[in-house]
Design a protein around this nucleic acid. Structure first.
Lengths: 340, 340
DNA sequence: CTGTTAGCGCTTTCAC
DNA sequence: GTGAAAGCGCTAACAG
């Protein structure tokens, strides 16, 4: 037998209306704050609502109105510290505005992205915030709700986007290392099918050229998606005939591996700048110099932008870029061949 | 050529039925995998489904069936690394079973917990996984769906719970420190209104007594919820007339602060055992000894338990406890007065 | 095997 | 100001 269904019959609007001796429509008006109801009637209805403990059914309301008070958020992985922070911030602000939040992870799989986005759309979400993974987002051109992209630009669509200037951040990192006298700077980063990686790698290459450093492709180790892979890449780089004297790590997952490798090999003399701050970066010896992009700030900006769209305000600029900040802690200020 | 999706004009089951020259009910049967439909009819309907790009409306279905294929997850904060990992794991497994996931954070506020749980319930979630914060969960006794608690036991209700043995973990940590010869062991941990903290503190006190160590309440610094507060608490402890020679940190947020403080004061000779592993714990010098409780394992167990309940299997035991593991990395193996 | 009829709980015409 | 009726898209009953 199936589990016993609770006899707790839900209080419906009809029950409220009956108790207040009025119609469901009038009760509905009161619930929805329609002013055109007699004060006396309104009082009766509110009393009934409180007495019965009535709570409107969001599903029925959603079906009838064709819209929901839920925000859809689609990110790579909720377990990724960066996205966890961004998502958590958005959720907090959304709740404060009386909005619910539905979160879905894609695992960076375009097909999963398409599935979850369509599902969210089918649920009539009020708005959609997406860290894009797919290569074509043109199907969102006529989406029935505001769509905002985060961290990466959509492809095949001029969608409003909140992001950091990956290219500039990478250039800044490499320029900083060049200023310490480094000529051979290694790159460790994620997969090339992620736009963020491509932009950071492009910035790295731009600045290598601009600073006239060694443009050696064997110093570039992309497609490292986990800390373990970042660690392995670092070990490889250090084993090169002409190893780099400095490393730029392009994302936090990699950074954790790079740091682990440098400490394991006792090669903390190798200069290091990481894209993205992380816990304990300031505690290590030496402290890890980072290009800081505050995930909470991204969350706040994304949430506020979405609230503007939900309120009907049109987008002014298609892109909102957040500033980056070089945080010097020691690892990035070491000179080449700094072994002691 | 991928078919263009017009999200605006929704394809309804009625359209599919008309195209297949049948009734909506028969079409509904096919959609829901009812075998009692003629193969030929089924083929016509499936063809229409594909041609029209029909996707069932989850809202309408939910309203009609009185249930949804969404799992509700309620945790302290999605930005907390521990809960991000647990939640991410559950989400991944849920998606794989065709379930959606709705996540809500409470910020450890009992009123917010009550609000979000009721909201999730109003949305007819298929099941609810809760890291409890409120002090009374008796209102969930007759919940219309399976409810599973994670990380902490509910109060006022014998609910099925997945957790780690906080008390035993704390005892193990203190016993380990006692074995190194420490007699004064400090405690840094979260707020006392969180059951996890209470259990770990109780375990700490139990073992202090069992090992006949100094039971000095001035060594106990609870109510530290952030890394900054953990850092401050550590500084306070070290400034005591009779400072501890070892510290037990009861949660990861605190641990990050404790570690930062020890490094900042150059007092890494103070022995340290932390409850909960964290990134770079093995990279620091000395490596941080931890009582490891794998958040992913908790997520897997929680998800599987929930799937069992959704399938109708009754709970065998009310509690499922995950094993803890002492990971020795150096910080917890240092002797007292180990300054060099 | 298939179709018709009623709703799920709510909000929206459009009357009064 | 208020209310009756008509659905939103779907599926549980119960016929046929």
């Amino acid at each position: 037998m199936t589990p016993r269904q609770t006899v707790k019959t839900q209080v419906r609007l009809k029950d409220v209306a009956e108790m207040a001796a009025t119609s469901t429509k009038t009760a509905s008006r009161v619930i929805n704050g329609d002013p055109r109801v007699a004060d006396e009637t309104r009082a009766r209805i509110l009393a009934a609502v409180r007495e019965l403990g009535y709570r409107p059914d969001p599903t029925a309301r959603s079906l009838r109105k064709g819209t929901d008070d839920t925000l859809g958020i689609v990110v790579d992985s909720i377990a990724d510290p960066f996205f966890a922070s961004v998502t958590g911030t958005i959720e907090r602000l959304a709740i404060a505005r009386g909005l619910r939040v539905m979160i879905a992870s894609t695992g960076r799989d375009p097909r999963i992205e398409s599935t979850v986005v369509n599902d969210l759309l089918a649920r009539r979400v009020a708005g959609l915030i997406i860290a894009p993974t797919a290569t074509d987002h043109s199907y969102l051109r006529h989406a029935p709700c505001p769509v905002l992209f985060v961290d990466r630009r959509p492809e095949g669509l001029d969608g409003e986007t909140v992001l950091v200037d990956d290219n500039a951040g990478a250039r800044q990192a490499v320029a900083h290392l060049a200023a310490q006298g480094h000529r051979r700077v290694g790159f460790v980063g994620g997969k090339m099918d992620v736009a963020t990686t491509r932009n950071r790698l492009a910035g790295y290459r731009d600045q290598i050229a601009a600073s006239a450093l060694d443009a050696d492709e064997s110093l570039v180790r992309a497609a490292r998606n986990t800390a373990d892979e970042g660690r392995a890449a670092t070990t490889e780089l250090l084993a090169l005939p002409e190893p780099p004297t400095a490393i730029f790590s392009s994302n936090t997952r990699c950074s954790l591996g790079v740091v682990a490798a440098l400490h394991a090999c006792k090669r903390t003399d190798v200069a290091l700048v990481c894209f993205g701050d992380f816990a304990l970066a300031d505690v290590l010896a030496p402290g890890v110099t980072v290009i800081d992009h505050d995930p909470q700030a991204i969350g706040v900006l994304a949430a506020e932008t979405m609230f503007e769209r939900l309120a009907g305000a049109p987008a002014v600029d298609l892109e909102r870029t957040l500033p980056l900040r070089l945080v010097m802690r020691g690892s990035g200020e070491q000179p080449p061949a700094g072994r002691t």
